[in-house]
Design a protein around this nucleic acid. Structure first.
Lengths: 205, 205
DNA sequence: GCAAATTAATGATTTATTCAAG
DNA sequence: CTTGAATAAATCATTAATTTGC
């Protein structure tokens, strides 16, 4: 109960001293070690995230079903969806504790709901025909990566299903850099062994 | 998934145009640059190679154990094993851009272990890790990652359920210094702290 | 009811991924 | 190209809960 309470209060990945403290508190009730606390938080966070993933996945399925039947427009902008899951991104955000800055993305005022929905629609229209289990596993894997989660398009979606099979360049993709642009990065870029391959791929850096 | 598929299909070191192409393909799902693809292949190849190295090393160990225990008895089993994975040096070939003939080591029926040894020595020299790999495997990550290792209780607990109802501070929480340095220390620690689980789980590994 | 079988939950461990630095 | 560190994901192993055939 105590750990649950702490988790609910926001503790996700306690550091050494925090773990020590928690362990000291809990040791009043019985033998316990720091690693137990550490594992507990690891597992709890992971399984909480897993639950959320499944939830999102189900939502996705629902939405895709909906879209499949009603190919209308602007469903994503309906207030119901936004209000129904307004904390989608916040729910995700709580899992990243003190992560590097490049993950703590503040999606501008465009709205996280649209972003998430779009993410879903863009990323996962691909396979909904696969077998359920395989699908779920794949989903898990893709969802698990917060990085991918955040590499989301921002901006008003012209249409949920962008059918432009041209693919590469058409979209206004406003996202954050995957790599922080730093001097080291530049240097590494230039000193890479196969840097010649990269010259035309990334001229900006 | 796409990159994995390409890797599985044989792509190891894509050139600039390939990278461009892949990047264009992947950019449909989010922002990505050529260097990401480049780095991905670099790392994936390296770590795949590493995995193979360890696998071979383990196989070697196993077979040596096998030979040590069952000399000249049903050696065909070993051969079947080698036949079960006859692509040992085919697996190697994929790492080299050009596969010259000197890799075509004739695996003699005499023994797979020699072949493996040769393989190891010929192709990569295994980074002089051969004697350290065992230790590395067993406790490679234990040293670096065990934040909780330094806060584990020391000494036999006087009573599992200490009746000190005075509060939290009544119990002196002895902690270790940073890292217990020797393997024996670590082993003792592990077997002492989490008693039965480790012992039971050991033979599986 | 009820014991065997199956499934869910959970602690612990291992493996994989990512970034940073050398 | 390598390695270290952080940590997420996957997996293992055991316990508990639940279902099922009788």
């Amino acid at each position: 109960m105590i750990l649950e309470e702490m988790y609910r209060a926001g503790t996700r990945t306690p550091n050494a001293s925090q773990i020590q403290q928690i362990t000291a508190h809990l040791s009043f009730y019985g033998k316990i070690e720091g690693k137990n606390v550490f594992y507990w938080f690891q597992n709890h966070k992971a399984r909480d995230r897993q639950k959320l993933r499944r939830k999102i996945y189900k939502q996705l399925q629902q939405q895709q079903l909906f879209h499949h039947h009603q190919l209308n427009h602007h469903f994503l902008h309906s207030e119901s969806t936004s209000a129904a899951s307004p904390t989608l991104h916040q729910q995700l955000a709580c899992y990243t504790n003190s992560t590097p800055a490049h993950i703590n993305i503040n999606i501008p005022q465009a709205g996280v709901e649209e972003a998430s929905s779009q993410l879903i629609n863009y990323t996962w229209k691909i396979d909904q025909l696969q077998e359920r289990l395989e699908m779920e596993k794949t989903m898990m894997r893709m969802y698990g990566r917060d990085n991918w989660m955040m590499m989301v398009d921002v901006g008003p979606p012209p249409s949920p299903y962008c059918s432009s099979s041209t693919g590469t360049t058409g979209r206004p993709l406003k996202t954050l850099e995957l790599f922080p642009i730093t001097a080291t990065n530049l240097k590494e870029e230039c000193t890479a062994t196969s840097s010649k391959h990269l010259q035309n791929s990334n001229p900006t850096n």
